[in-house]
């Protein structure tokens, strides 16, 4: 009775020992992965901050303006003059609708073989 108990206890101890040992190594490995990841994140954050700064620099008017000046001649760029601004209500209204009756008459004449323009030319040449 006591012997079986002892055997079970010894077995449990060995199993626990092996388990703890394995766990310890697993944790160590996880910790080193964590440190590695942290270092990676740190590096990427640093890179990101650099890229953001680059982006901000490239977007500055003080950076864009000289580029515009450099390509002014090639692209035909010129500053906008006040006269060149317009409003929607300054646009002319659409032309009134075409004269429907006259068009119908024209098409009917063409269908029946008389070309009014030809008639006009003939009339003028006589």
């Amino acid at each position: 009775m006591i012997r079986t108990l002892n055997v079970i206890l010894v077995c449990t101890s060995i199993a626990a020992l092996v388990g703890v040992y394995g766990l310890k190594y697993a944790v160590e490995e996880t910790a080193s992965t964590k440190v590695e990841l942290e270092r990676l994140i740190d590096k990427q954050q640093a890179d990101l901050s650099m890229l953001k700064a680059d982006w901000a620099y490239l977007n500055q008017p003080s950076h864009v303006a000289p580029i515009v000046v450099r390509h002014e001649a090639a692209l035909g760029l010129k500053p906008v003059r006040p006269e060149q601004f317009g409003r929607l209500d300054n646009l002319p209204m659409r032309k009134p609708a075409p004269d429907k009756a006259a068009l119908d008459a024209l098409f009917e004449a063409l269908d029946s073989g008389i070309d009014p323009i030809e008639q006009l030319i003939i009339g003028a040449s006589q």
């Binding site: 954050q45 640093a46 901050s49 650099m50 953001k52 700064a53 901000a56 977007n59 500055q60």
Partner: peptide, 11 residues
């Protein structure tokens, strides 16, 4: 919204 001052991380 244009950045006028940013932090960069440098070694």
């Amino acid at each position: 919204g244009l950045e006028m001052a940013v932090d960069i991380r440098v070694p």
